[in-house]
């Protein structure tokens, strides 16, 4: 071990953050770039399923809340792209990787939002699952990532609350509204559990990431925490979680739950989810349609610079 490596390992072991200018192993850098950019892409692609309901929100208040929520996700994307940029990759390069399919984003956003209740289910479950991950990441070892997470977590609890509140209004409404809420839970429950990734014994990057403190808890630990919390919340809503195997286990002090459909999981990861193509096409189109705008903005800045240089 070189002295650089030794120094790095010491920092990891002593819970000292790694900062952009510190020496770090190549793989550590790569793993962080992969994870942070994937996280950033998830925030941006994640704007689309909820954006799908902004113009159809059922009240002005709900519309304003949803707009603000989706806007927050854009802000999260910004923080995260900036954090990743400290590792020596540009935002444009990352976006390019998203558009070519080289970089992934969270598979959950490849499912369609077909009813208003999905805005509730996404806030409650998807943001809820994201919070489990993100709270843990506030103590991740790479400083800029950890600090971005602290900012993001502050906003996420509002996201989960607004989702839960949407569902609460629905279950307190009439039979159709209740049905709408249950239908959304039926569709979003399993994909939400999948958000934590493969089982620990099938997770290729997990061991190294845990050692480097990029990850603080294993996929299965976080998933269990989520199931425990969400099951109690579902009781408050009076909705039934679509898992016949879900049962309190006194001995473990946790809920047991059924097996995830891993075939579906890998299938969606590979690009065969109901909306994979649509989501990517939409992102690419926004980027391509915006090209002349970005060019104009840059050309204008250049012109200004030249003019002020001439004036000086």
């Amino acid at each position: 071990m070189t002295s650089f490596e030794q120094h790095f390992e010491d920092k990891i072991n002593n819970e000292v953050n790694i900062e952009p200018r510190d020496w770090m192993p190549d793989d550590y850098r790569k793993t962080n770039i992969r994870q942070i950019s994937q996280h950033a892409h998830s925030e941006i692609v994640g704007m689309l399923p909820e954006g799908n309901w902004i113009t159809r929100a059922p009240s002005l208040r709900r519309k304003a809340i949803l707009l603000a929520k989706v806007q927050d996700e854009a802000g999260h994307g910004l923080y995260l792209y900036s954090a990743a940029e400290t590792l020596g990759i540009t935002r444009d390069e990352m976006i390019e990787q998203l558009h070519t399919g080289k970089a992934k984003y969270s598979s959950i956003f490849n499912y369609p939002t077909t009813s208003w209740a999905d805005m509730g289910a996404i806030g409650w479950l998807v943001d809820g699952a994201a919070i489990m991950n993100q709270v843990a990441l506030c103590r991740t070892s790479y400083g800029p990532y950890a600090r971005a997470m602290v900012r993001i977590c502050k906003e996420e609890s509002f996201h989960q609350r607004q989702g839960f509140e949407i569902l609460l209004s629905l279950v307190r409404g009439n039979a159709t509204q209740k049905k709408m809420a249950q239908d959304a839970l039926n569709r979003w429950w399993w994909p939400s559990l999948m958000m934590f990734g493969p089982n620990d014994d099938n997770s290729p990057h997990s061991a190294q990431s845990l050692h480097w403190r990029i990850k603080r808890f294993s996929n299965d630990e976080l998933r269990q925490k989520f199931v425990d919390a969400a099951t109690e919340q579902a009781k408050v809503l009076g909705l039934a979680i679509p898992d016949p195997a879900l049962k309190w286990n006194e001995e473990r002090g946790h809920y047991d739950f059924g097996e995830i459909d891993w075939e579906e999981f890998w299938n969606v990861v590979k690009g065969n989810g109901p909306c994979n193509k649509e989501r990517l096409d939409t992102r690419r189109k926004a980027w391509e349609d915006g090209e002349w705008v970005r060019e104009a903005a840059m050309a204008y800045v250049e012109k200004r610079k030249n003019r002020s240089q001439k004036a000086a």
Binding site: G51, K63, L78, A286
Partner: peptide, 17 residues
């Protein structure tokens, strides 16, 4: 609001919203 998620660059998406 129709622009939300479709802006030419993230910062402008946020400004429009």
């Amino acid at each position: 609001g129709e622009w939300c998620g479709h802006g030419p660059v993230l910062e402008q998406d946020i400004a429009l919203t």
